[in-house]
């Protein structure tokens, strides 16, 4: 329950405070969101599997976001930013789908 409240609080904070992001970081926001979603779905699934661990969750979240942004940044520097962000989105998307399917099995038993 507390994590869900935290998520809601974060969304509300973001919507009302509207913090400004440095222009140089703006291109990496969408990919960071996808990475964050992956970590959140993974954590939810682990919780339903009964093996949730706060340390693992926090570390996986931070590293996911940073690594995804870093990969895209590196790709931008090498001139393959679009392709690398596609790769990141594909891999993370598959993982999100897989975790969502596992969560669905837990919740609906189907």
């Amino acid at each position: 329950m507390i994590p869900i409240l935290g998520l809601a609080a974060g969304v509300l904070l973001g919507l009302f405070l509207d913090p400004t992001v440095p222009v140089s970081l703006q291109p990496y926001l969408p990919i960071a969101v996808v990475a964050a979603l992956d970590a959140v779905f993974g954590g939810l699934r682990a919780r339903l599997d009964g093996i949730f661990d706060a340390k693992v969750f926090v570390i996986s979240f931070v590293s996911n976001v940073v690594v995804a942004a870093l990969i895209v940044f590196l790709g931008d520097q090498l001139g393959v930013g679009a392709q690398l962000s596609t790769a990141v989105v594909v891999v993370l998307g598959i993982r999100i789908f897989g975790n969502a399917a596992a969560i669905r099995r837990h919740v609906f038993r189907a």
């Binding site: 973001g14 969101v33 964050a36 959140v40």
Partner: peptide
């Protein structure tokens, strides 16, 4: 354990913030 919960909640706040900011930008 309490620390872990706080950390998880904070992480979720960050996740929500990230989503909202990205949405705002788009």
């Amino acid at each position: 354990r309490r620390w872990g919960q706080v950390l998880v909640a904070l992480t979720m706040v960050v996740a929500g913030l990230l989503v909202a900011v990205t949405y705002h930008h788009a």
